[in-house]
């Protein structure tokens, strides 16, 4: 089964280049878009398996688009492909439901592998993302918000995340910690799930407190 892809980037050279790379590797590139608003509109009709998205899109931010797409289209997964400097945006997009993050300097092989993993429902947990997630758990532990206690990492999850952030592959981590490859993946997924769940709870609480829940969405 071919994986259908949509590419969102405001940089035409980049967009077309990625589209060609993915087409050459057997992906069905259904559509491209240059900004967040068009991305959401086109994704609603095209319903691609994977939306490959830069976050630096001007008007409607990539974070908002990523939240809307993952919220509205359960069959569509968002993979963030962004420049290295947009850390806060990347973290927000991942908390909002994006499945992973790849830097634009990644090789074609890494990109192809990442899109396949995203389509298969696995998170793309690069070293860069692991560093941010680690930092985010520490930030939340440091500045406890009112309301729900922030989620915490278990000791093993912290070990796994640190190794991912240092660039070890799942197999190398499994060898080093003497656990199975699958257990490593589970730990990684669990750290992301807790973060996304906490984010949804926080958003809902915020909406109720501010009376936003009475609106249609």
């Amino acid at each position: 089964m071919t994986v259908s892809v949509m590419i969102v980037d405001d940089h035409p050279i980049w967009r077309d280049g990625v589209a060609r790379d993915l087409a050459e590797h057997g992906f069905d590139v259904r559509a491209t878009a240059a900004d967040g608003e068009a991305a959401l509109r086109i994704a609603r009709t095209v319903r691609p398996d994977v939306v490959l998205m830069d976050l630096n899109l001007g008007e409607t931010s990539g974070v908002v688009a990523a939240r809307s797409i993952t919220g509205e289209l359960p069959g569509t997964r968002v993979l963030v492909l962004s420049a290295s400097g947009d850390h806060s945006d990347v973290l927000e997009a991942v908390k909002a439901g994006a499945s992973g993050y790849l830097v634009k300097s990644a090789s074609v092989a890494e990109l192809v592998d990442a899109v396949h993993r995203t389509a298969g429902g696995d998170p793309v947990f690069t070293a860069g993302l692991a560093g941010m997630v680690l930092g985010e758990y520490r930030r939340m532990a440091d500045a406890p918000a009112d309301g729900d206690p922030p989620p915490r990492l278990t000791e093993r999850e912290t070990d796994v995340l640190r190794l991912v952030a240092k660039g070890l592959t799942a197999k190398q981590i499994a060898d080093r910690l003497v656990i199975s490859h699958r257990t490593v993946e589970n730990h990684v997924q669990s750290t992301l799930r807790k973060l996304q769940l906490h984010n949804r709870v926080e958003l809902a609480r915020y909406a109720i407190e501010h009376g936003l829940d009475r609106d249609e969405d």
């Binding site: 850390h87 300097s105 070293a127 692991a130």
Partner: peptide, 20 residues
Amino acid sequence: LRAALQLLATPRVQVSGPAG
């Protein structure tokens, strides 16, 4: 320090750290 280290990133050097 985060931003200063980020400038050292190349296709062969991955820099990771907190988002802030």
